[in-house]
Amino acid sequence: MAQHSEELEMAPDAAEAWPDRIYDLLKEHNIRQVALVPDAGHSRLIRRCEADNEMRVVTLTTEEEGVAQLFGTWLGGQKGVLLMQSSGVGNCINMLSVAVAHRTPLPMIVTMRGEFGEFNPFQVPMGQATPAVLEAMGTLVRRADRPEDVAPTVEATLRLAFNTFRPTATLIGQRVLGAKTFGK
């Protein structure tokens, strides 16, 4: 029998505060464009951004569109962030050369799959390769594996991107997203 989708995806518990802390940080840093391909782990943050009239949420057909978009965003003097799941990192590889060559601030917040109690075999290859792929393309990568580490890590990622002009990423570990929402 098919399982309900919410059992196959991993979303943070409604009581968890870290998605709201990420939103607060995006506001503090005056993030105006939020490019994303949805992930259940980002669902609460996405709702907060969509409710904010000062943020332009751009849903993408593929994550590399977001890398290109945020280059244009910075050209025009605004700041943006890219939200995606670890599988989406693989879709960005060559486009990351745009941020590297132009020295464009490019903060990414990545929810991890395929690494902690994963149910879906297809999530494992890219999940395991995510930090190596990002680092191979010149991205400064930091991880948060406990809820209380998420906000400080995201803040460091935003500061590194906009102060030092490069792609940066926070990887939010699958354990933080709540492995308990498994169906099995």
């Binding site: 569109e65 050209l75 486009m95």
Partner: peptide, 25 residues
């Protein structure tokens, strides 16, 4: 002018990011 030396497939999205950031231009 922003002439691109790479990022094949990204030009239109770069235009979108720029257009949203500079709506009067």
């Amino acid at each position: 002018n922003l002439p691109l030396w790479g990022g094949m497939g990204g030009a239109a999205m770069m235009g979108l990011g720029l257009a949203l950031a500079q709506p009067s231009r």
